[in-house]
Nucleic acid binder design. Structure first.
Length: 300
DNA sequence: AAAATCCTCAACCGCGACCAG
DNA sequence: ACTGGTCGCGGTTGAGGATTT
């Protein structure tokens, strides 16, 4: 009959929390931090198991929790992120400040799932690897956009003209898609490109890279891994405030970016069937030669 | 007005990951 | 390398409020 309980539940209270219990928990954590959840109930004078205390704190009592209904932007973000990472509620919650994984999970199961079903996306599967073409297509679009925008973010500090060219191209195309915003995350950042760089470096980006490895079906370093390393190198190659080598680094970074851009297009086109053909065929980005020409202009 | 049904969401459960010894 | 303890995550449940019959 399953595994033994996580803790000795003899005599421990279960079910809804009372205001008194909430106060005990909040007072204790605010004064001492939560420390060991296992020991916390005894120290705080609560007749609950540590797990229950942790859940109550993280899902309800934490001071930074945002209350109230989900905004349209939040809804859109959840749908988009779910398409990318699937039921990884904690990852999705990490991109929605003030929202808990439990809240998002509940909202998905009670609202968004139904909405998408009504829209003809019948019970959308987690992640882009399976399911109906429409949902998969949307998810692939988002993963592609994340990576592309991360690159543009890196370029933005070194080549404004090139960035503008590419951004214009991507936004023009995205006008035909419903997924054009980064949600509340974007509002908190200095520029949209920064948002995507942060996303790319977060668990979301990591999830995409893992997915890409699976899609490539190879034990050798995948293109996604190669580009990840290259992004790291780009970041290390251009430390903040280093003006003396900035110019050469900019050119080098831009050259690398063009190579990666080509790699990405190759990968997306060959491995995922994105952009051209498999799911209807459309072009997200300008041809690479056009990008190179833009970069040359920018650095002359 | 009462019963039945539906819906929401806080809370629980079990599993896997991680870490220290 | 192994083991036990702890934590975090995702799936599921069920109480209670809302809506319908």
């Amino acid at each position: 009959m399953g595994r033994a309980p996580c803790c000795d539940k003899k005599g421990l209270k279960k079910g809804p929390w009372t205001p008194e219990e909430d106060k005990l928990l909040v007072d204790y954590i605010q004064a001492n931090g939560h420390g060991s959840w296992r020991l916390l109930p005894k120290l705080a004078g609560l007749n609950r198991c540590g797990k229950s205390c942790r859940l109550r704190w993280t899902n309800y009592l934490r001071p930074d929790i945002k209350r109230g209904p989900f905004t349209a932007e939040e809804q859109k973000s959840i749908v988009q992120l779910h398409g990318i990472v699937g039921n990884k509620w904690s990852m999705i919650a990490a991109q929605l400040p003030g929202r808990t994984d439990n809240e998002i999970k509940n909202y998905w199961n009670t609202h968004l799932k139904k909405q998408l079903r009504r829209m003809g996306l019948d019970d959308p599967p987690p992640g882009p690897a399976a399911g109906c073409p429409a949902a998969r297509h949307m998810a692939q679009w988002e993963t592609a956009r994340l990576e592309a925008e991360a690159r543009l973010s890196l370029l933005s500090s070194s080549g404004a003209a090139a960035t503008t060219t590419i951004t214009a191209a991507t936004t023009t195309t995205s006008a035909s898609s419903s997924s054009t915003t980064a949600g509340p995350v974007a509002a908190a950042a200095t520029s949209p490109a920064d948002v995507f760089l942060r996303l790319w470096n977060s668990s979301i980006g990591d999830s995409f890279r893992k997915l890409a490895v699976v899609a490539a079906g190879s034990s050798s370093p995948s293109r996604a891994d190669v580009t990840k390393d290259a992004v790291k190198q780009e970041e290390e190659a251009a430390p903040a405030g280093d003006d003396s080598s900035a110019a050469s680094n900019e050119v080098e970074a831009a050259t690398m970016a063009v190579d990666e851009y080509q790699m990405f297009l190759d990968f997306a086109g060959e491995e995922l069937g994105l952009f051209h053909g498999r799911y209807g065929g459309f072009s997200l980005f300008p041809p690479v030669d056009l990008l190179e020409a833009s970069l040359e202009t920018a650095f002359k």
